[in-house]
Amino acid sequence: MDLHLAGKTAVVTGGSKGIGLALVRTLLAEGMRVVTASRTITAGLKETAAVPVTVDLSTAHGPAELVDRALVELGGIDLLVNNVGVGDTDDFAKGARLNLIELPDDVWEHTFNLHFYSALRVSRAALPSLVERRGTIINVSSVGARSVAAGPADYNVSKAALSALTKVLAEQFGGKGVRAITVSPGPVGTGVWTDPDGFVGRMAKEQGVPHDALVEQILAASGVTTGRVATPEEVARLIAFLASPNNITGSEYFVDGGMIKNV
Results as ranks from 00 to 15, higher is better:
Arg124Val: 03
Val229Phe: 07
Gly175Phe: 11
Arg97Ala: 14
Arg146Asn: 11
Ala10Asn: 07
Leu214Trp: 09
Ser142Met: 13
Ala161His: 06
Gly208Ile: 06
Trp193Tyr: 13
Gly44Met: 12
Ala37Arg: 01
Leu130Tyr: 05
Glu171Ser: 15
Ala64Pro: 02
Val131His: 06
Gly31Leu: 15
Pro210Glu: 14
Gly7Glu: 11
Asn246Ile: 04
Ala153Asn: 08
Thr48Ser: 14
Val34Phe: 08
His110Ser: 12
Thr194Val: 15
Ala164Pro: 00
Ser251Gln: 15
Ser222Met: 12
Pro196Ile: 05
Ala43Lys: 14
Thr40Gly: 10
Val51Pro: 03
Gly135Met: 02
Ile138Arg: 05
Thr225Trp: 13
Thr182Cys: 14
Ala22Ser: 11
Asp212Phe: 02
Ala149Glu: 15
Met1Leu: 12
Val67Phe: 04
Asp256Trp: 13
Leu214Val: 01
Ser118Lys: 04
Leu79Ser: 00
Leu98Val: 00
Leu80Ser: 06
Asp106Ala: 08
Arg228Glu: 13
Ala6Ser: 13
Ala220Ile: 03
Ile248Gly: 07
Ser16Lys: 08
Gly174Tyr: 14
Ser123His: 00
Thr89Tyr: 06
Gln217Trp: 10
Ala220Gly: 08
Val235Asp: 13
Leu79Thr: 01
Ser163Asn: 12
Met259Trp: 13
Pro187Arg: 12
Val209Lys: 12
Leu27Cys: 09
Val263Ser: 09
Met32Val: 04
Arg124Tyr: 04
Ser118Arg: 02
Phe241Cys: 02
Thr182Phe: 03
Lys94Tyr: 03
Val84Asp: 01
Phe173Lys: 02
Ala126Glu: 03
Asp90Leu: 11
Asn156Thr: 09
Ala236Lys: 03
Ile260Ala: 07
Arg179Cys: 00
Ala150Gln: 15
Ser58Val: 07
Ala236Phe: 02
Val81Trp: 03
Ile248Phe: 11
Gly174Ala: 04
Trp108Gln: 05
